[in-house]
Nucleic acid binder design. Structure first.
Lengths: 250, 250
DNA sequence: CAGCGCCGTAACATAATCGTAACATTTACG
DNA sequence: CGTAAATGTTACGATTATGTTACGGCGCTG
């Protein structure tokens, strides 16, 4: 079916995994003072990181979105958009929501620090700082950064959920889901095979603000089943009597 | 429920395989005439490109999505799906939205050319052509290649936005947009298919200097829809309840 | 300064979704 | 088999989110 020369195919399959897995962490430096950029860049590269540099706030957002860095060093004072603004902005988007951000600032005022952390910064570094301190804090935030990353695309059997476009397909069919059905399915797909009680589902999918009858879950399970299965009888939701429901192979 | 090919979703919003920077550019040749394939293949390889070949429209879409070529040479007349269709199709998906496409055609009629460019082709080559011309144009589009979101001309389905001249067309129709509507549409076209919350849109399209009610977004969506759709009922903006809006195929 | 286009908001209209109760069916178990 | 408990299914009124319209204000431009 695919017409490609064997040479190409081998080449590509050789190269692809390499970059994905054991490449160096990429650090985005957001800083307009050339001297500091040079300093940071030199230290980070010496320590085995890859770096890219943004000179202003706009560029920072651009690069953060396109290059998917593993961490961001973000200067407080910037042209076009302040570091604070950039930080808040990045935190609004799923792609960058969980990238660790270390704020750099000339002042060490408590208030600024708190504001920075409020906006979603992970750590805080006061100029002047030693390269050792920088690297230590960087290692720390990178270490902590593991579990946050929710997958953008969830797959279970022939069901695909794309959280970016907010679409669900089963095989080749596009599935339309109401909001609660979507959240319910997402929760199941985040923990495939695991059984959840009605109470647990109410907690996680509904939230604990309003009291809802446990039996209401049944109704939404029914709606989700109907939407997912169409007319075929391949039910991916398993009822575990006395316990709850799980996403499971038919 | 609509039917979509599984290939469409295979890589949707996933990261495409990233090739090492110093590898040769990969060119996808879409052409059913063997003689021309041979010619193109020989010339491209001599000039230092890697090539893969698709013999029909279906295969073209498949390979474009799975192999992430750096550019596509696309014949106008094809089995299964016309080059025009393939072009439009590829432009609908984020992964292939920004791959440069050069259309190949036997005829040099102005009208075809315009239609091709409307569908999102980057350039146009009339058979017979000299290898020199081919390579020159290829170099040109590769040089210009940029992520969709930084492109000067954005294309989604039959909508074209030229940021240089600040013009928007849908099919043959010129669309007049107020400034906010323009920025809103631009943002959607920079991230086709992606859902944005009202808050995110206020951040990116409005900017956060002044506080604006989230519901104001609805009104501008309405105005944009009205301007784009005319009287036809082909709405390219999808409402995702409780979440936001996205640019999407009708 | 009058007219025009654009914007943000509130108010009202419409549509989608939700939660619940009531009834139907299945299951477990003696 | 027969019964009780658990789950499946359905229909419907209430609620909420979104669609739509109209209006006043503001900044330009002629």
């Amino acid at each position: 079916m695919m017409q490609i020369s064997s040479q190409d195919f081998l080449l590509r399959n050789d190269k692809l995994p390499e970059r994905a897995k054991d490449s160096k962490p990429l650090i985005l430096i957001v800083e307009d003072e050339e001297a500091i950029v040079t300093l940071l860049d030199y230290n980070l590269r010496s320590a085995g990181y890859d770096t890219i540099v943004a000179r202003d706030g706009e560029e920072a957002v651009d690069l953060a979105l396109t290059m998917a860095p593993n961490a961001i060093l973000l200067d407080w004072m910037l042209p076009l958009r302040s570091g604070l603004e950039v930080c808040r902005h990045l935190r609004r988007f799923p792609e960058t929501n969980d990238v660790p951000i270390i704020m750099l600032t000339a002042r060490s005022e408590e208030q600024d620090k708190l504001r920075g952390l409020d906006m979603g910064a992970d750590d805080y570094l006061t100029k002047p700082f030693s390269p050792q301190e920088l690297l230590a804090r960087l290692r720390a935030v990178l270490r902590r950064a593991q579990p946050a990353r929710l997958k953008e695309i969830l797959v279970f059997a022939d069901i695909r959920m794309d959280q970016g476009s907010h679409r669900v397909t089963r095989g080749e069919t596009l599935i339309e889901l109401a909001p609660t059905e979507f959240r319910l399915l997402r929760h199941f797909m985040q923990f495939p095979g695991r059984v959840f009680s009605r109470e647990q589902l109410l907690d996680t999918v509904w939230g604990r603000e309003k009291e809802v009858e446990p039996r209401t879950v049944d109704v939404h399970i029914r709606r989700l089943r109907k939407a997912l299965n169409g007319k075929a009888d391949s039910d991916v939701i398993r009822t575990v009597r006395e316990v709850g429901y799980s996403l499971d192979q038919p």
